[in-house]
Write a protein that binds this DNA or RNA. Structure first.
Length: 594
RNA sequence: GGCCCCGUAGUUCAAUGGAUAGAACGGAAGUUUCCUAAACUUUAAAUACAGGUUCGAUUCCUGUCGGGGCUACCA
């Protein structure tokens, strides 16, 4: 049984017996700080009103009672208002027997019966992916894995932003200045080729804008009159009208981009169950605007544009349809959401993995869905993550201040390869194995670097210093795993008996590792509730660190007592398993040797 | 201007309202006849400022200062 639940019951019983009062509130425990003896700590302050005594005396009394009446409690000590409880080695041994037999330790055993759709990635098809997208993809993928581990049915969705004025910008620039360049003719990856023209558009736009400003036209007015902008708007109208030539160009360029994305996704190790295209959902959004108008939720201005008044909810007026009848971002999102409600009536939750710069957008979106009468609006959740910043500020695709995803992945693999070579511990591996290992290590460094940070917080990436491979990093954890596997291999060769059930009581060092393993299921559950992979990342790091300490302190194979030796090897093996399972939830693979 | 988020060692990150605020990198000093030194050990170094709430505040509230985002007929 779970230790906290067990002790909670005992404490409630204790209070009742000692002080003749019911304590109905939840009793909370915390981990005992390492500088004190004990495994788990009860904070006494909430009980002093009931006991009518000082914290130390209350703690003594509760501790005495627990020690006498609870066989799991071996001993206790009191420091100020804290009751530090030592759990018996016998309890830890029982616990260990359970986890070493459970292959999926930490993961939910039963289905929760819930279905959750998580949307992530959602790229625009006008430029290649950059570091910001990497955070999005890794976060979305990891949260999906974590939710599965919590017993939910998960649908991973990718909504491709394949249409809109930004897409037309790349198209127009290519049409004007591309001279028929293709991925084949240029040797460029498709998404990079298209991105090149997106940047080109911006460059030309600015040139034209400056010409207008030089003529003395006020900036605000000039911005709307740049010929290139008028052309691109015309192109969007043609696209929405189904103009053959425009559609053909659009299809061709989007195909280039998809081929490029496919490679990046594969390199990152992310995947999807369901792909949506905005080009196929925006019309539904438009019809929803009609519906909203009829219901009186929306209103139309004289110029024909459609709006919603959200001032009563503390927000602003929001545009839903342009005066020329074309749709905007939120129009499409309304359509997509409603389509999903209809397609998956069983959906318990719909999670959008999108950066926090869109907090306002999603607030508005969910409010509109609610006002349109969709009760599923309350099941929608914006998984809002912080931006990845560079030392000089935000990344901007148009201005070319981006860290390209493909470049960064390649660079990390290179760094890993150099380090592997330098260490020279991989002899006996053929080229393919070595390549696979370096891939694994390079990606672990990148993924862990991003996922160890609380998703809600913005994070900084400095391209000048490459991502570390030592310290609190993915490769550190991988290394610990490789060491453990090496131990286990050796045990299998030299000591065939090691896998028999452990019978030796764990010592102090073993218990501190066991305590750590004990918390894994709780961490998986909490990270699932909070949609926060960083909890798992930090947990695994602490576990690996603790194991390395153990490894340095205790010589496992030197131990003469066979049952003690067996316990240690099994403990190492269990630790390796938790590391592997935890890293899997982060989308990170761990090697058998490195 | 309005709304939202954030200020923790030199740097990058931790800390359900709990004990002496943890790590990593970088700095200083050590550990290899022993299971993988991508490791381990020791060490210096931080809660922007001012109030409030309480047994107790990095955490909650108010204000000041500083940073970022949104406030587009961009997405």
């Amino acid at each position: 049984m779970n230790l906290e639940i067990l002790l909670s019951q005992k404490v409630t019983e204790t209070i009742k017996t000692l002080y003749c009062k019911e304590y109905s509130q939840a009793i909370s425990f915390q981990k005992t700080r390492p500088e004190f003896a004990g495994d788990i700590t009860l904070v006494i302050f909430p009980f002093i009103k009931i006991s009518g005594k000082g914290p130390e005396q209350t703690a003594q009394e509760i501790g005495n009672y627990l020690k006498e009446h609870c066989k799991e409690v071996e001993n206790f000590n009191v420091v100020k208002g804290f009751l530090n409880i030592e759990i018996s080695a016998a309890y830890w041994l029982e616990f260990f027997k359970n986890i070493s037999q459970n292959k999926n330790y930490g993961f939910a055993e039963k289905s929760s019966g819930k279905t959750i759709m998580i949307e992530y990635s959602s790229p625009n098809t006008n430029k290649p992916l950059h570091l910001g997208h990497i955070r999005n993809n890794l976060l979305g993928y990891s949260v999906a894995e974590i939710l599965k581990a919590n017993g939910h049915k998960v649908i991973k969705a990718n909504l491709i932003n394949d249409r809109g004025v930004h897409i037309c910008k790349s198209m127009l620039a290519w049409k004007k200045w591309g001279n028929g360049e293709t991925p084949q003719s240029s040797g460029l990856k498709g998404d990079h080729l298209v991105g090149k023209y997106y940047v080109e558009f911006d460059k030309q736009y600015k040139t034209e804008l400056n010409k207008l400003i030089a003529k003395g036209i006020p900036i605000e007015e000039a911005e709307k009159k740049v010929p290139l902008l008028l052309e691109v708007q015309e192109m969007l109208r043609k696209w929405e009208a189904g103009d053959n030539e425009t559609i053909a160009l659009w299809k061709m360029m989007n195909e280039w981009v998809y081929e490029g994305f496919e490679k990046t996704y594969k390199a990152l190790g992310v995947d999807f169950d369901k792909i949506y295209y905005e080009s196929q959902t925006y019309l539904l959004g438009k019809s929803m605007v009609e519906e909203g108008l009829q219901k009186g939720v929306f209103y139309k201005k004289e110029d024909g544009s459609v709006w919603i008044d959200l001032t009563a909810d503390g927000l602003d007026h929001k545009l839903l349809l342009r005066s020329d009848g074309t749709s905007v971002y939120i129009t499409q999102d309304i359509g997509t959401a409603i389509e999903r409600f209809k397609e998956f009536p069983e959906l318990n939750s719909l999670i959008y993995t999108v950066g926090n710069e869109q907090d306002y957008h999603f607030k508005v979106l969910f409010l509109i869905l609610e006002k349109l009468g969709y009760k599923q609006a309350k099941d929608c959740y914006h998984l809002s993550y912080g931006m990845v910043e560079l030392p000089h500020g935000k990344m901007k695709s148009r201005e070319g201040t981006v860290v390209d995803a493909d470049d960064l992945i390649e660079e990390m693999i290179q760094t890993a390869a150099e380090k592997s070579k330098e260490r020279g511990k991989t002899e006996g591996m053929d080229d393919a194995q070595l390549h696979q290992l370096n891939n694994m290590i390079g990606l672990a460094a990148l993924k862990y670097f991003i996922l160890k940070v609380d998703p809600k917080k913005k994070m900084l990436f400095n391209p000048e210093d490459s991502i570390d491979l030592n310290g609190n990093t993915g490769p550190f954890i991988q290394y610990t795993h490789a060491r453990i596997r090496s131990l286990v291999r050796k045990a299998q060769e030299q000591f065939s008996n090691y896998s028999s059930v452990a019978t030796s009581l764990p010592g102090k060092e073993e218990i501190s590792l066991l305590k750590h393993l004990y918390y894994f299921p709780q961490v998986v559950a909490e990270s699932g509730e909070k949609f926060d992979p960083s909890l798992i990342a930090n947990y695994i790091y602490d576990l690996a660190k603790q194991f390395n300490q153990y490894y340095a302190d205790v010589a496992i194979f030197k131990e003469e007592n066979e049952t003690v030796k067996a316990l240690r090897i099994q403990l190492a093996e269990a630790t390796g398993k938790v590391i592997k399972n935890g890293m899997q939830l982060l989308g990170i693979q761990v090697p058998e040797r490195m």
